[in-house]
Each structure stands twice: as structure tokens, then as C-alpha cells.
């Protein structure tokens, strides 16, 4: 992870996310779990989804006043292990902007996402699933 220069992407088509004023909601449409991503975690998630590779991000924490490389690497590793993102075969082209670097430097809290699994029945019943474009009727995802 530390040296990865590859773009990371959503792990599969069931992982969808939306941004709201810098916060994110990540939905796993297969399991019905969702993650609320705020603060440091949201900034890191956005950079990863914008095509910034882990190496470029982690390099910024080598001499960070508040956070360590290990904390950030652990967070990104957790995203992978939780099935939210995966390494693609595409080398990252984009780099951190000066604004990105400044926002990383300003982080004070270790990143974490809040996982909610107790609404899976609502999420699996939700309108994101329930209208199939062709059938025009609710269709349950095959399990």
C-alpha cells in the first residue's frame, strides 16, 4: 500500500457513494451496509476517488505535525479490506494540488468511517434498487 502508485477505484458496481458538502455516504447495495464518511476520512476518500494514488497521499504524512503514515495507511487498507475500494491496473496520472496538500497538512484527527449495518432492510428495500429501468417494476437483486 505504502508505495502503490496505482489509482484505487470502487471495489465493484454495488459500492456507490455520494458527496454532500464534503461528507460522503458510501452504500453497499449488496449487503445493505452504509458508511458515513466525514472529516479526515472524507478528504482521503475524495482524493482516492479523484485518482490520487496512496503513495502520493502517504508521502504527505512523513513529516505531518499530527498524524502518522501508519494511521493513514491503516485507514486505506481498511477501505480495501472492507470491500469498498480496490487497486486498479491504471497508474495514477493526477498529483496532489497545493490546496490538497494544505488540506492534508491541516488534518488533526485520525480518519475513520462510521459503519451502519442495522438499516440493511431499509437500504435493500430502497428506491435505488426498486425500479428496474427495463422491467419498470421493483426487482430484487439476486443474492
Amino acid at each position: 500500500m505504502r508505495q502503490s502508485a496505482f489509482v484505487f477505484v470502487s471495489a465493484n458496481d454495488d459500492i456507490v457513494f455520494e458527496e454532500f458538502d464534503g461528507d460522503f455516504v458510501i452504500l453497499d447495495l449488496q449487503s445493505g451496509e452504509y458508511h458515513a464518511v466525514e472529516g479526515s476520512a472524507a478528504i482521503l476518500w475524495k482524493l482516492l476517488m479523484d485518482g490520487i494514488c496512496p503513495k502520493a497521499i502517504l508521502d504527505e504524512f512523513e513529516a505531518h505535525p499530527k498524524l502518522t503514515v501508519n494511521q493513514i495507511e491503516e485507514y486505506i487498507t481498511n477501505l480495501v479490506e472492507n470491500g469498498l475500494i480496490k487497486e486498479s491496473d491504471q497508474l495514477a496520472v493526477a498529483g496532489l494540488s497545493e490546496d490538497d496538500k494544505a488540506s492534508l497538512l491541516a488534518l488533526t484527527a485520525a480518519p475513520k468511517t462510521d459503519l451502519f449495518s442495522d438499516l440493511s432492510d431499509l437500504i435493500l428495500a430502497d428506491p435505488i434498487h426498486d425500479v428496474d429501468e427495463e422491467a419498470g417494476w421493483p426487482v430484487r437483486k439476486p443474492q
Binding site: 455520494e18 454532500f20 461528507d23 460522503f24 455516504v25 438499516l119 428506491p127 425500479v131
Partner: peptide, 19 residues
Amino acid sequence: TQNKSVVAREFSRALLKSA
């Protein structure tokens, strides 16, 4: 409910507010 992208986004926003 035909406008799926708006529904999906608004649904996600409701989840974030709940969180």
C-alpha cells in the same frame, strides 16, 4: 420515483443526516 439519480442521491442524503 422515475428519476432514479435524484432519488438515489436524496436517499443517500437522508442516510447521512441520520448518521
